[in-house]
Amino acid sequence: MGAGHAHPLHLDHDSRVHRLPAEVKIVATLLFTIVVVITPREKFVAFAGYLLLLVGVLVVAKVPPGWLAKRATIELPFVLLAIALPFAGHGERVHWLGMSLSVDGLHGAWNIFAKGTLGVLASLLLAATTTARDLLLGLDRLRCPQVFTQIATFMLRYLDILADDARRMRVARLSRGYDPRFLWQVKAFAVGVGALFIRSYERGERVYLAMVARGYSGRLPRPEGTGATTADWVRSATLPIAAGVIALVAVLA
């Protein structure tokens, strides 16, 4: 956990998608997701088209499909909700394998499943190809208010501090022969949480004051690069534009 720039979903290698500036990737992901969400749910072909587009990005970004599929399980709670809908929905019902299913619920389930999955896959591809630092830089270049980037910068730094301190305190507790894991031992956990907060704050405060002493004024220096070029914008625009064309064709057909 040495370098604070990676995050658990980042896939550390080089590809054409990795090299794109973060701001164009954020905008492309956002536009793509919007197109997916506004597509009427009964246009099944369009969703297949979107999936193919994402497969294309996956190939260019050299992201292993298994790696992506494993992380897409974050969506599981909503898939379970989707499975419950055909049973709980109202209106016209169909009978299939002896089960009475609501048509509206089936459509709703498909809607959540398709749009949710495509959205998660798009976000995962963004996360896999962008480091936390680049993402903040991208948000900064997109004129995101400085308060946000400042809080986010500290947050990502503190996450590592919190995790490390929590691990140290756990080891210290275990090595003293105490391992609270039942409800009536919750006090140990509670006291630990408070102590963790103060410890992390005081470590982080020292780091912050050291940063201020070295000239930090709310914004990290931007060392290299001048941001996205027109070519970068054009290259990343292919994804949302292709999705838009698919949506138009599907709606008009």
Binding site: P77, F78, V79, L80, L81, A82, I83, A84, Q150, I151, A152, T153, F154, M155, L156, R157, Y158, L159, I161, L162, A163, F197, S200, Y201, G204, E205, V207, Y208, L209, V212, G218
Partner: peptide
């Protein structure tokens, strides 16, 4: 100067705390 690092820590803390999930019903957590 005091609130900036605190805001970051609070955000990180909330981030960590939001990872604790409670299953309410199948599908709704």
């Amino acid at each position: 100067d005091r609130l900036a690092p605190m805001a970051g820590l609070v955000a990180a803390f909330i981030f960590a705390v939001q990872m604790l999930n409670f299953q309410v019903l199948p599908g709704v957590s």
